[in-house]
Computed example of a mutant assay.
Amino acid sequence: MQIDKIRGEQLDRLFKAVLELDDLEECYQFFDDLCTMSEVQSLAQRFDVAHKLRLKKTYDSIQQETGASTATISRIRRCVDYGSGGYNLMLDRLYPELKNNQPKK
Rank of each mutant, 00 (worst) to 15 (best):
A50P: 06
K57R: 14
A44R: 01
L34E: 13
Q29I: 07
E26C: 00
Q45T: 12
T36F: 02
E39C: 09
Y28L: 04
R46Q: 03
L43R: 08
D32K: 07
C35L: 15
S38R: 15
F47L: 01
A44K: 02
K52I: 00
D32T: 11
E65M: 05
V49D: 09
Y59P: 07
T58D: 04
Y59I: 03
F31V: 01
R46I: 02
Q64E: 13
V40L: 14
E39V: 09
A44W: 05
L55Y: 07
D32E: 11
D33L: 14
K57F: 13
Q41H: 11
V40Y: 13
D32A: 09
R54M: 14
A50G: 09
F47V: 00
D60N: 10
T66D: 04
Y59F: 15
E25K: 06
S42H: 15
T36D: 01
A44H: 07
Q29A: 05
Q41A: 04
E65G: 01
L24R: 07
S38L: 13
A50S: 03
V40E: 05
R54S: 13
V49F: 12
L53G: 02
Q45W: 11
M37F: 10
E65L: 06
Q41S: 11
K56T: 12
A50T: 04
S42A: 15
M37S: 12
Q63L: 01
F30C: 04
H51V: 06
V40T: 08
S42Y: 15
L53M: 06
Q64G: 00
S42P: 07
R46W: 10
F30T: 02
D33S: 11
Q64H: 09
C35T: 08
H51A: 07
T58L: 02
L34W: 15
Q29M: 03
C35I: 03
R46A: 01
C27P: 00
D32P: 01
E25W: 07
A44D: 05
L43D: 11
L53F: 06
K56W: 14
R46P: 01
T66E: 04
T36Y: 05
K56R: 13
D32N: 11
F47S: 00
Y59C: 03
F31Y: 12
F31W: 12
H51Q: 11
Q29K: 06
R46S: 06
Q64L: 08
F47P: 00
E25H: 05
L55K: 12
L34Y: 15
E25M: 03
C27W: 08
K52E: 05
Y28S: 00
D32F: 14
C27V: 12
Y28G: 00
C27I: 08
L43C: 08
L53W: 10
Q45S: 12
T58C: 02
L55F: 05
Y28E: 09
T36L: 03
Q64S: 07
A44G: 07
E25A: 04
V49A: 03
D60Y: 14
A44F: 07
K57T: 09
A50I: 04
K57W: 14
D32Q: 09
L34T: 12
I62R: 02
T36K: 03
D33N: 11
H51Y: 15
T66N: 08
D60C: 02
Q29S: 09
R46V: 02
V40W: 13
T58S: 14
Q29C: 01
L53S: 02
S42N: 15
K57S: 14
F31C: 01
C27Y: 08
K52V: 00
V49W: 10
E39H: 10
F30I: 02
I62Q: 04
